[in-house]
């Protein structure tokens, strides 16, 4: 039950893009088209789940015993970047199809604040105290991010046909829409 609450909380209540304002660059940048958004969502789910579990292991099994917690930022960045790069190379060799879907998005999302954010939040949140919970938190964050990214992409495709006043075309309207979505998600506040 704890795990379910954690997962739902990460998806809806503490949505990464709309409530915590993490990962806004891909949220605005890749939400122009539904196809791209779906590719980015899969890559995000992959990277966030992987990085949250690995960073948990690095933090609790290496940094804490050695009493060098202050190195966590740099340690997380290095391990996550190295790991994703390695995975990308493996995927390219083993499954060209998967690589074509995730391909470009993997390096893009790896350098994103949401990835470091989920690793750091895992160390700050006392309730994420096991490897399973830390991984679920990362997975939930990715699901929540993907959900709003895909909804946003469908919305922006529809807005292409709208008679939007000139100054608001493109990014301004995207940001206003994101703000209105964030207002909607404020309704979930306090649910977990």
């Amino acid at each position: 039950m704890d795990e379910l609450t954690l997962l739902l909380g990460a998806i809806l209540v503490y949505n990464f893009a709309l409530v915590q304002f993490l990962g806004l660059c891909p949220f605005m940048g890749v939400s122009g088209q539904l196809e791209g958004a779906i590719g980015m969502s899969l890559a995000t789910a992959f990277v966030l789940t992987l990085s949250s579990s690995v960073s948990y292991a690095v933090y609790h099994w290496a940094l804490v015993p050695l009493q060098v917690e202050f190195l966590r930022t740099i340690a997380f960045i290095i391990t996550i970047a190295a790991l994703v790069q390695l995975t990308e190379m493996t995927v390219r060799r083993l499954s060209p199809l998967l690589h074509r879907i995730l391909g470009l998005f993997l390096p893009l999302i790896t350098s994103n604040c949401a990835v470091l954010g989920v690793a750091l939040l895992n160390t700050y949140r006392p309730e994420n105290d096991t490897l399973l919970k830390a991984t679920l938190y990362g997975f939930g964050a990715a699901v929540g991010f993907s959900l709003v990214l895909i909804l946003m992409a469908a919305l922006r495709e529809r807005l292409l046909a709208a008679n939007v006043p000139h100054p608001f075309r493109g990014a301004p309207l995207g940001l206003i829409s994101a703000g209105l979505m964030a207002l909607t998600f404020a309704g979930f506040a306090g649910m977990v």
Partner: peptide
């Protein structure tokens, strides 16, 4: 949730999902 009524949130969320 914290809000006693939520029709507005429900409707807005469904608007938000309508294009998909």
């Amino acid at each position: 949730g914290t809000y006693p009524d939520a029709i507005a949130f429900g409707v807005l969320l469904s608007n938000f999902a309508a294009p998909l």
